[in-house]
Design a protein around this nucleic acid. Structure first.
Length: 151
DNA sequence: GCCAACGTTGGC
DNA sequence: GCCAACGTTGGC
């Protein structure tokens, strides 16, 4: 089983939305490196949900990959904000998996808290200038994050 | 293939 | 709102 972290702006789509929807198609990622990680996701992988651009920035809960990546339909949708004129049905550019809500942390595990945890200082999230919206997380990091969320 | 200009992300 | 750090685009 692999572990990941995905960023979302809660004003666009929050952990509360995911809890309500139970399952969602993780669409709209338009960065090649992030897309490649999305394609690597396997059913059962755990996914940390991260809220960016908000009053409380940090990790907010856990989801699970429930379906491997397939072409992101929004790339073909002219009315979508995520429409990509260069993508075709024959050669889609963007892929996304389906993820399922597992749990929401009692409190947001703040970015500022994560920064102070020695074990986590190799996290992609904490690397200088990292804007990657889909990132791999090590098992050790994942376990440490769950532990920190149980306070 | 280079690189300047431009657009986006995201913390502060 | 600012701005650093990227990523992408497109002319050459």
């Amino acid at each position: 089983m692999a572990f990941w972290l995905v960023k979302t702006e809660p004003r666009v789509y929050s952990i509360e939305d995911l809890a309500k929807d139970k399952v969602t198609h993780w669409e709209g990622v338009r960065n090649y490196q992030a897309r490649n990680y999305l394609k690597e996701m396997v059913v059962g992988d755990r996914v940390l949900i991260y809220h960016s651009n908000d009053e409380q920035i940090g990790i907010v809960g856990v989801a699970m990959v429930s379906k491997t990546a397939y072409p992101d339909p929004s790339q073909f949708d002219r009315s979508s904000h995520y429409y990509d004129p260069k993508a075709t049905k024959e050669e889609p550019r963007w892929f996304s998996p389906e993820i399922k809500f597992l749990s929401k942390f009692k409190d947001v595990l703040l970015l500022s808290t994560l920064k102070g945890v020695e074990v986590l200082n190799k996290m992609v999230l904490l690397q200088r200038g990292s804007r990657l919206s889909v990132q791999p997380v090590s098992e050790l990091e994942f376990k440490q994050i769950l532990k920190l969320s149980e306070v």
